[in-house]
Design a protein around this nucleic acid. Structure first.
Length: 594
RNA sequence: GCCGCCCUAGCUCAGCUGGUAGAGCAACUGUCUUGUAAACAGUCGGUCGUCGGUUCGAAUCCGAUGGGCGGCUCCA
């Protein structure tokens, strides 16, 4: 309750800041056209059409003007105008975007348009007018002048539509207190340190190469080790949970994509075809049609259903250059894909199970903060309404059964079926869609998938497309950020490093190393080419969980001196005790396949 | 794809308003044989993303192009 009040008050502050911003910009550019200026979850923004592009220095000037407006303690005064008067005023005000918004409002049945005026308290003069429903703080003096900061200029399409003109958007941070702003700025700085793009470089996990093609990921040995661990865990878990593995090709003839419809509605996202034997072949942007080929390979009975076919399927999609982002948005990626083909009677249980399984996977890797979104039927869609309704209902029931809080994304489904998505935040708070469980009412029709029911007649199966982790690339990116590169022991690419004090102890050191290696631990040996301190430093920077330092004492006592990355403690262990330490830790972290 | 910013050695960065490139780390070679976060010395390394233009002269100014970053749009 209390929290809600604070947050709505904060929204008021943020939105009021956006008015002050607009007023300041209008002072600087009287011919500026105002777009919209809402509160967002770390501050506010306002969109403008301006006579010239802004430069970063402009932000300082605008900020100064804003501070002046705040110091003048102008009153926010609300008012309403009947529709026709409002339109006249906005025409005269020469604010075409506001005019457009007002006319939209009037079209949708509004009789009156709300305005806010900023009034100079001493003489009552009107300093600024904005068409806006509010609410705002009482006066600009109430705004915490030290708790805001303009930080970015960006382009943004008017009304978010790329067919419209691109306006200039000014972003500002705003909080109720200066300390909150400082905390937030610190948090951003800290978050940047765990950005997977930085850590990927620092820890030598992966790279991308301009010359070899943007958005294509090169997994270095340490990154590949982690991927191998993820894949192994994933495969075992799937087999234990009733899935079959399949493998399918990377390219397919145009027939496949014509039948699936991808050439009709997805071609611009597909890599250009290659010509082979006078036939066009396309690199796959998804795995579904291939799995369907396996299904349609023979006549299917209801007795065979449900079928759950999983594949770590590598796909390639031509993503727009501006959207590429480290490992989180790439052009070639491996989906942890599976298709569930089942009867209408089975669908509810299958959905519940798929969602449970997905949550199990995320928890196994240490993720708990997950948001779910259920997307329903859009205007343009295929499939019978009754199937949509049943499918949507089963998604909601599955989420409820798992005790997962979710938001409805009305009309946000793909044209071919409703879906539930799980989203996770990256280091700086951006949400990324990871898991998806989606119905497909399109492909079973297009490929004429059938099964023979108990009644001896042909039926159309339900098909569900699901990816639990999303893609290995994206998952890996989040994993790096989640752990700041300091992975749990069971995932760590290097679990321990043996460091001899000097090369006089190479023999003992290598004995320790070999023993660990033979027992299956991921271990490295660092001979005394550098000083001891330097080698420890390197191991620290590589975030290796355990450093085993061996010298005279250890050799004599048959022990290892263990330095822990996480605790920075040093403790001497007998080898058997060190194994126990590691095994306990691995056991605790790894819940293992269900 | 759109708007803005950025691109100098393997990495992190310096290089004032144009005079033709520098540091630390890394790598390599020696010396040192080390007790819990950087031993010492030397060597190597860049046609300053690419192409074109302006200029007596361009890392620096202009244009194009590739890539990255932050947004927007998109995300089957």
């Amino acid at each position: 309750m209390a929290k809600e009040n604070i947050s709505s008050n904060l929204d008021k502050i943020r939105h009021s800041f956006s008015h002050v911003l607009a007023q300041a910009v209008l002072e600087m550019f009287p011919e500026a056209k105002l777009g919209i200026g809402p509160a967002i979850d770390n501050g506010f923004y306002y969109d403008f059409e301006l006579p010239r592009t802004l430069i970063p220095e402009d932000l300082k000037i605008i900020e100064k003007k804003m501070k002046k407006i705040i110091s003048q303690n102008q009153k926010f005064v609300s008012g309403k105008q009947p529709a026709d008067k409002a339109m006249d005023f906005l025409k005269e005000y020469n604010q075409k975007y506001k005019l457009e918004l007002a006319s939209d409002l009037i079209k949708s049945g509004e009789k009156e348009i709300c305005f806010y005026e900023n009034i100079q308290p001493e003489n009552g003069s009107i300093k600024f007018v904005d068409m806006c429903a509010g609410p705002h703080v009482e006066s600009t003096g109430k705004l915490p002048v030290k708790a805001f900061k303009l930080y970015s200029i960006a382009g943004a399409y008017w009304k978010g539509d790329e067919k419209n003109l691109m306006l200039q958007r000014i972003y500002g941070y705003a909080f109720s207190r200066k300390e909150d702003l400082d905390d937030y700025l610190n948090k951003i700085e800290e978050a940047k340190k765990r950005d997977h793009r930085k850590l990927g470089k620092d820890l030598d996990l992966f790279s991308v190469h301009e010359k070899a093609g943007p958005g294509l990921i090169y997994w270095h040995p340490k990154g590949a080790r982690i991927r191998h661990i993820i894949e192994t865990f994933w495969k075992e878990a799937h087999i234990k949970n009733g899935y079959e593995m399949v493998y399918t090709p990377h390219i397919g003839r145009s027939w496949l994509w014509e039948t699936s419809g991808h050439l009709g509605f997805y071609r611009e996202n597909m890599y250009a075809p290659m010509n082979i034997d006078e036939e066009e072949y396309f690199i796959k942007p998804m795995n579904c049609p291939f799995h369907i080929m396996i299904y349609n390979n023979s006549k299917r009975s209801y007795r065979e259903l449900p079928m759950r076919w999983a594949e770590l399927g590598t796909v390639y999609r031509y993503e727009h250059s501006g959207v590429l982002h480290g490992l989180l948005r790439v052009r070639g990626f491996t989906q942890d894909d599976a298709h569930i083909i089942c009867t209408p009677e089975q669908i509810q249980d299958e959905i519940i199970e798929a969602l449970r399984f997905s949550l199990f996977m995320w928890k196994s890797f240490g993720f708990e903060d997950i948001k779910a979104y259920i997307a329903t039927k859009p205007d343009k869609s295929v499939g019978e309404k009754s199937r949509w309704d049943q499918a949507t209902k089963s998604l909601i029931e599955a989420a409820e059964k798992e005790g997962l809080s979710f938001e409805m994304d009305e009309g946000g489904g793909a044209f071919y079926g409703p879906k539930i998505d799980l989203k996770i935040k990256d280091a700086i708070g951006r949400e990324w869609q990871m898991s998806t469980i989606q119905f497909d009412f399109n492909l079973p029709e297009r490929f004429d998938m059938k099964y023979i029911g108990q009644d001896g007649k042909e039926h159309r199966p339900y098909m569900v497309h699901r990816a639990l982790l999303g893609s290995l690339e994206r998952f890996f990116g989040l994993l790096v950020e989640h752990y700041s590169g300091s992975f749990p022991l069971w995932i760590s690419p290097v679990q321990a490093v043996v460091i001899p004090v000097s090369d006089n102890f190479d023999a003992y050191g290598e004995k320790v190393y070999t023993e660990l290696k033979n027992k299956g631990y991921r271990v490295e040996y660092v001979s005394a080419d550098d000083s001891l301190n330097k080698r420890i430093r390197k191991a620290e920077l590589s975030k290796i969980p355990y450093m085993l330092i061996v010298g005279e004492k250890e050799e004599n006592d048959k022990t290892v001196s263990v330095r822990s990355y996480k605790t920075k403690d040093q403790k001497v262990y007998k080898m058997v005790d060190f194994y126990k330490l590691m095994n306990d830790e691995i056991k605790n972290k790894e819940t293992g396949p269900a």
